[in-house]
Amino acid sequence: MNGRKSFKDDEFSFDMNTMTGISSAWSETKIKERVLTQFNQTRARRNIINATAVYGLSFCAILVLFCLFNIIFHLLVQGFSSLNRDFFLQLPKPVGEPGGGTANAIVGTLILLIVAVLVGVPIGLGAGIYLSEYAHQRFAQAVRFTTDVMNGIPSIVFGIFAWTILVVPFKSFSALSGGIALGIMMIPMITRTTEGFVRMVPVPLREAGLAIGTPKWRVIKDIVVPSSLGGIVTGIMVSLARVAGETAPLLFTAFGNHFWHSSLLAPIAALPLQIFSYAISPFEDWHRQAWAGALVLILIVFVINLCSSYFVGRQRRMFSSHK
């Protein structure tokens, strides 16, 4: 370890001390006491435990990877064998008849996501920028706390909320209510990522703008937001990928539809909903289509995630020369 690294470590622990107050309990004697209790055992025994632990821990990691590969394997095998042209181009066939596709559900998911973006992005973006640029400490902390809590609210609760404000008054399940439910779910994540990336814009850059007499709103619009755009887009895409696969909030808002949707105020099909209803159906052919749908859905989610990691990479490079 070179000198600089250990300096950083010191700085880090100092920071930790002042912020958490944890290490007041972490004096040298405490560490000594904790470690020395182990010395009651023989060295050989301790070494054996130490060696076995590695295997136990890597076994955990292997188990996790096994689950992942098992899921991916079944998705690929079952999904690819069931995918065909009809799946993308045809409407679902009536109950029990084989064949047909889920063209309406794929389009429906895209429409729901567009509505969600229209709802979630402006609010999330605005809130994130406000938190970083204007908010007082107290207010910002309260909003941050709210978004964190919101992030943990079960998705089905957002479905009930959208149902109470849009389905009940309009007396019909609708694409609009589903899209809004998804949009609301995007808000907390977009707010937090936007705030984080906007905050990372170096102060000298803002000051350069202010120094030549630029009003603050122009600094935000023309300097701060453009230079953190990559990160902002990342946040939007990650949250989009998350809601793209959401089913629960759509169950009684978008509701699903076996035909093409007629308007935003009518029920609409969605890929996750279709997968759900096909999976719990008793028909072999629908099970097949559920796997195909799952494969398509996961590809959509992964592609959005991949794009987001491209943008985050771009954002990282942006200020790398500054620090």
């Binding site: 689950c67 992942l68 098992n70 079944h74 959401e246 997968i275 759900f276 559920a290 859905l297 992964f302």
Partner: peptide
């Protein structure tokens, strides 16, 4: 990646695998 898999797909995998 595991975290990004939608819950309905976990459900599908659960039922059939």
């Amino acid at each position: 990646l595991l975290a990004a898999i939608p819950s309905v797909i976990y459900g599908l995998w659960g039922i059939f695998v």
